[in-house]
């Protein structure tokens, strides 16, 4: 039983990963004829004859799929022609900022959404609770582009409370503590945008499932035993209400990534999203390919981990044939 729980989700994820790697290997090679000149003809990047030959060689040297696959592990992901830098260096430089932004937003919105959702379900029917649900439903409908642009206009440009772009002040010689404060200030607006985008979904979902769980008999039993209400809420009921949030996370992940790309671009936050935006606007195909592949593999990994987290939260899952 235990073994099957570990093995079961693996094939789909391994296959999905292989499909992504193969797609990123095969798709550029499907381009007809001399795509290099077609691609770069209208771009702001001008290539010397030497560079053009290099790019063509990069795509036509017929390295086999196995070689491409191995290069993936040795961080040999190719060379960006817009930045004149190895792709691995660019991605590894941008990755920490993206992880900080997205990870922070997810942790905050999940914890906040969970606690507020549980409390709202507990106090169901009150005036504040109902208007809160209404506000969250409206917020759930506003896309990240909308919140991002409005927060930028109000707090960065009009009020000037936060910096409008970047992740830290360039060339500023701060003490470590000053630097942390600087980074936090730059992080505030993009983080707020993402939290505003993720929080309502987590809240509504937790509240919905919590309301359902609170009707179960074991909650009644726990109350009847005279346990303190907070203990009934969190130790008994909330654990069961956690499940839908974890499941929905995997389903919404593509949606969330799209939003994060946009938010990073709006605030020129130097993560993978902005790197991708720059790569797209400079038509840097190898870089686009690298970013897409690496971030998809990371998403696959997160999804796989979630699968196990799900089984751990709800032991019943492992017992379903």
């Amino acid at each position: 039983m235990r073994r099957s729980r570990i093995i079961k989700p693996l094939p789909a994820f391994v296959l999905a990963g292989l499909i992504m790697v193969y797609a990123s290997y095969r798709l550029p090679r499907l381009l007809p004829g001399d795509f290099v000149s077609a691609m770069y003809a209208s771009s702001p990047v001008t290539l010397t004859a030497d560079q053009e030959a290099q790019i063509k060689a990069y795509y036509t040297r017929g390295e086999g799929f196995s070689r491409y696959f191995l290069n993936l592990f040795t961080l040999n992901w190719g060379y960006s022609y817009a930045f004149l830098t190895p792709i691995s260096a660019l991605i590894l430089e941008a990755l920490p900022w993206s992880l900080l932004l997205m990870g922070g937003a997810h942790v905050i919105s999940m914890i906040l959404g969970f606690i507020v959702g549980v409390e709202a379900a507990w106090r169901r029917g009150g005036y504040i609770e109902r208007s809160g649900v209404g506000c969250m439903t409206v917020l759930e409908g506003i896309p990240e582009i909308g919140t991002g642009v409005i927060l930028l206009l109000v707090f960065a440009l009009y009020l000037g409370w936060f910096p409008a772009s970047g992740a830290e002040t360039a060339y500023a010689m701060f003490s470590p503590l000053g630097r942390a404060w600087d980074v936090a200030q730059h992080l505030a607006l993009p983080l707020a945008t993402l939290v505003l985008a993720y929080f309502p979904g987590n809240f509504l979902l937790t509240r919905g499932s919590m309301v359902m769980v609170l009707r179960e008999q074991f909650v009644e039993t726990a109350r009847a035993k005279g346990l303190p209400p907070a203990r009934v809420r969190y130790a008994h009921a909330a654990r069961n209400a956690l499940l839908p949030m974890v499941t929905r996370f995997g389903l919404r992940i593509a949606f969330m990534i799209t939003g994060a790309l946009v938010v990073e671009t709006i605030y020129a936050y130097p993560g993978l999203g902005t790197l991708l935006f720059n790569a797209i606007s400079m038509r840097d195909v190898p870089l686009i390919q690298g970013i897409v592949l690496i971030s998809s593999l990371m998403v696959l990994f997160v999804n796989l981990v979630l699968e196990y987290v799900y089984g751990w939260i709800d032991p019943r899952v492992g017992h379903v044939p």
């Binding site: 094939p11 789909a12 994820f13 296959l15 999905a16 499909i19 992504m20 797609a23 990123s24 798709l27 550029p28 381009l31 995997g250 389903l251 992940i253 593509a254 949606f255 990534i257 799209t258 790309l261 991708l276 797209i280 038509r283 195909v285 686009i288 390919q289 897409v292 971030s295 998809s296 998403v299 696959l300 999804n303 796989l304």
Partner: peptide, 23 residues
């Protein structure tokens, strides 16, 4: 259903970006 599982795991937007940028 196995095909559905695989597609669910792949982030759609990434495939879309790759295809849009290349073709």
């Amino acid at each position: 259903m196995r095909l559905a599982d695989i597609l669910l795991a792949i982030p759609a937007v990434m495939i879309l970006i790759l295809i849009a940028a290349l073709f």
